Structure formats: C-alpha cells, structure tokens
Simulated scan of single mutants.
Amino acid sequence: MLKKAFFGLLHTLGYHSRYTSVLHHPGKRSLRPSYVLDFDDAEKAFLEDSARSFNYAIDYSLGYRQKELYLVRLQDVQLLGNSGALVLDGKVVVESVGEVSRLAKSDAFKEVSLLLPKKRVGRYTSVLFLPWADHNNYHWFFDCLSRLYLVLEHIQEPIQVIMRRDMAPYQLETMHFVLKGYPQASVSYIGKHEKWQVEEFVLPSFVANAQSGFLPREIANWLRKKVWHGYGVQPNMAKRRIYISRANAKTRRVLNELELLPLLGRYGVEVVRAEELTYQQQVQLFFESEAVMAPHGAGLTNLLFSEQCQVLEFHPANLIKTHYFLLCKALGFRYSAVIGTTGDKLENYTVPVQEVEAWLKDIGV
C-alpha cells in the first residue's frame, strides 16, 4: 500500500521511475521494414575512424540499419508537457523518447515537476522530443518533424497534433508548413506544466538513428519540399559556395579559422554566420549553395534544404560524428571530411589548411 502511494506521489509530481515498450503492442502497424545501407571502401574507412573516436560506442562501419517504421495506436495514455514522453499504466513508453539510453536524460525520469492533469477526448499524436529539440534544429527536423510523415500519410481520420506554444518560431512555422494539405490534422497546444490523459494516441516511430541524419528518400523529399514551399524558396541560377563559421560559438570552434579566410576568398567562398540570418534566409541560402564547408554543428542540418551540393565537414580527431555524412548519403550529395587536431575541453581544434585547399581545387573554380 505504501509503495503504491509512493509511486502515486511521484507520478503526481511528473516523475516516473519505470518504463515499458510498445514494440509488440497489438495496436502496432508496420509501415516499412528495416533495411541495411551499403557503403563503399572510402565510406567504411570514414565510419571506422568515427567509431574509433568514440571507442566504438557506435560503429556504423559494420553496417547501418535503417530502423523499421511503424505507428502504434494506444488507448488511455498520458502525454507529459515538459518532455513529450508518453506514460502507459504508470510507465514511460520507451519509443516516445527514442531509445532506452535516452530515458535517464529525459525530463520524464530526471525532473520532478507538478504537472496539472487534463482529460482530452478524441485522437491525438505528438512528436515533441524535449529537451533535445528545444531550439535545436537538428533534433527538430530529424527526430520530430520527419515522424509526422508517418502519421499524416497513413491516418485519414481526424487527428490533433500536440505542440507547445513556446517552441522556437521556426519550429512553429515548419510544423504548420508540413500540415498544409492534410485537412484531417489540426494543432492543440499543451502547457509545459500540464499532462494530458488522452482517449486515443497514435505514436509514430522515430525515423533517424543516433548520430545520423539519414532519412529514407521519400521522407527527406517530403520534408524538403514542404519547407521550400512554406518559405517561398526562389531558384537562383548563380550558385553559391559558403563556409559556415562557428567563430561566435562557445564550442567546436576552428582555432585557425583566420588562416582559412584568405584561401576561402581566393575560391569565391562566402563566410556565413547562421545566427545572423532568419530561418527563411538560411533555407534560401542552402538551397542556392553548390558547395558547403563547415565544422561539425547543428548549422549543417540545413543541408536538408540544399537542392544539390558538395560538402566538406571539419571534425576534431577525437569526436568524428556521422550525422551529416549519413544525411549526404540519403540525399546523394558528395561528402568529404577533414580531420583536425584533438579537440580541447570545449571541442575546439585546428584543421590542416592544405587539405582544405586540396578539396577546393578538386571541386574546381
């Protein structure tokens, strides 16, 4: 009795210490089976370098499996407004927060917060993924919006998409862009300190894997076209070459960037600071770019909106991340990497200028 009361108090405070899975739930509907990507020798070598830099915690050189895509219809579940996590019979649904390794980092497990209960009748879905997608465009597009494709293309009945009003403006904008053309869908806004008990919930699987921007081509194209159309992207015959600078960032800065600037100028490469642009301007810029250079960072998420381009990404030797290599793989873009020195405690590092110049020569003037 005391144990039940204890867990009841924790649940009232928005904290759940146990989890459950719905992978074998009777309401699950498989939409597309998993499959494995093929890599050539050069790609495998890059993936091996990445795996080594992370002590083989993730090793895609052994094979990258695009996960199964599915929907699960659930009855009488709670959605937590502070995290987007689902709770079924007092336990957090693993598939609503991505994977088991993220559970301990989710507000559903680590944050005690009074959440006001509200009942909601009808059919709902949500792709909230907090705190990761909070003002982070990588997680927003790959872990949130991409999942809506599964719902909107396969659920014809009326359905309400649960969203937070306090998300970044570009997130609210792009959410409405993807909903256009789907009259069955509308938006309902939940507060950070609310938890909704919903009559029926449709849970979409996550599409992207950890450290991966890979999306199946039909989902990537759907998302690209929705955002292009929503922001009114205009074709431009004069293609651009850009370098995304992190000079104003706190982490992952290129310490010898000043050495690169004269070289970039000789090859007609513009230096861009994404934080100085509106999101519409960022989308337009990447759409126009035929070559993109940048240190690893969320700014490269906008490669999703390039029409066609070549990519050079910088990495510190001890943190070689695969997110945008796999995005380029999905989009058919030519991807290259330059590996710099070992990063310091803020992941700052220097890059070999001669390798950058060799890549610029290779792509031509």
Rank of each mutant, 00 (worst) to 15 (best):
T20V: 02
T20I: 01
H25G: 06
R29D: 07
R29I: 15
S30E: 15
A42V: 10
F54W: 09
F54P: 00
N55S: 12
D59G: 07
Y60V: 06
Y64S: 04
Y64P: 04
R65S: 10
Y70P: 01
Q75H: 13
N82Y: 09
V87M: 05
K91R: 15
R102I: 03
E111G: 06
E111H: 13
T125C: 10
Y138T: 11
H139D: 09
F141L: 05
F142W: 01
S146K: 06
R147D: 11
E153Q: 14
I155M: 14
I155Q: 10
P158K: 07
I159F: 11
S188M: 11
Y189A: 11
Q197H: 08
E200Y: 03
V202L: 07
V207E: 03
P216L: 06
R217W: 09
A220R: 14
W228G: 08
Y231V: 01
P235F: 10
N248L: 04
R252K: 01
E259Y: 00
L261V: 08
L263C: 09
E275G: 04
Q284L: 01
S289A: 15
E290M: 03
A294C: 12
G299W: 02
L312Q: 10
E313M: 09
A317E: 14
A317H: 10
L327D: 05
F333Q: 08
S336E: 15
T342L: 06
T342S: 13
N348M: 02
T350C: 15
E357F: 05
E357I: 00
G364S: 04
